[in-house]
Design a protein around this nucleic acid. Structure first.
Lengths: 170, 170
DNA sequence: TTGGAAAGTCAACAAGACTGACATAACCTT
DNA sequence: AAGGTTATGTCAGTCTTGTTGACTTTCCAA
């Protein structure tokens, strides 16, 4: 009964999933899921004198060790003043090391110290645990769809950063 | 060296999509996609004296007209003082109407004015356009997977809000 | 009827984004 | 060698949006 009904709806409407109501649900799913996504690291960081900005910096330095300040800037999409405030505290606290470039001595190449790597691991561990649970619960096909939609939602610039961080099998 | 190491890890794990690398990509996909997701409304709002917080309030008042401040509070997950600042400007500017409750005179029931509904439409129009393009590009199966994963990523509390806003066919 | 709980408001503060101006050092082209 | 550009760092000030604390009004139950 319900099956035939949903069948007829699907066949009568070519693109059922593109109604405004479906789109609204997609929008709200993004809103709520992003909250869940950032919750765990935020909770860990709230104890220390760090915030989400520090987490982001640590995450991408970990992904791309030796990256320059400028590169990090374009990935994070913030101003250098904003990033610098964060980076300064991380360097002062001994979580990040900024080495002067060999080839171009104007550049600073960023690395996590052991202590920085430890914090990164705690933060991403919490986030990965949630992601892993969600992926496991949803199944491989859903995960593939999840990534396809998310990539389609990015700007080309963002997509470029996303794909550029590592080689990424399409 | 590193290659053979990662290969051995891949072959030893039955669930390929749950490797740390796959999870990391999921995390970054969320980060970049959320940026794309909020970009358009942010750009529209940056001209006015409003921000993302106003957008969120307007969105959920539109979804659930007559909602109380308290209810909105628990949906948005901020303090009442924080929401109140936003709400005050919206009421003063004539975008939102706050009617004193008939039954309980402590409560304020929130509605969009015509002008508020107009702004809501501009904002959600931009967001829906991007979502629609992404959905269309990704295809129906991917969209289903996208939503499945996002729902699995929410806290139960958030999921409750998400599902509670309207009846939502599982 | 009185005291506690709940809804909402006002004030002050902090994090983290922004702009603008400026400094320094290193690179690069002429 | 000189001058312009690039990469980075810094100071000052503003804006949005989150926080806590203190307060009023209203409701409800002992």
């Amino acid at each position: 009964m319900t099956e035939s009904l949903s069948m007829s709806r699907q066949s009568s409407e070519a693109l059922l999933y593109l109604t405004d109501e479906q789109l609204r649900q997609g929008i709200e799913a993004m809103f709520f899921a992003y909250r869940g996504f950032t919750d765990d690291p935020d909770r860990i960081l709230s104890g220390m004198s760090y915030g989400r900005a520090h987490h982001r910096a640590i995450h991408f330095i970990n992904c791309a060790p030796g990256t320059t300040v400028n590169n990090l800037l374009s990935i994070l999409g913030v101003t250098k003043q904003s990033l610098n405030r964060v980076l300064r505290t991380l360097v002062n606290d001994g979580l990040v090391e900024a080495r002067i470039g060999q080839k171009d001595r104007r550049e600073r190449h960023l690395f996590l110290t052991d202590e920085g790597a430890q914090l990164e691991h705690r933060l991403s561990g919490a986030q990965r645990a949630r992601m892993r649970a969600a992926f496991r619960q949803a199944g491989p096909e859903a995960v593939a769809g999840f990534r396809t939609v998310l990539e389609a939602m990015m700007d080309d610039t963002l997509l470029h950063h996303y794909k550029g961080l590592r080689d990424y099998p399409t």
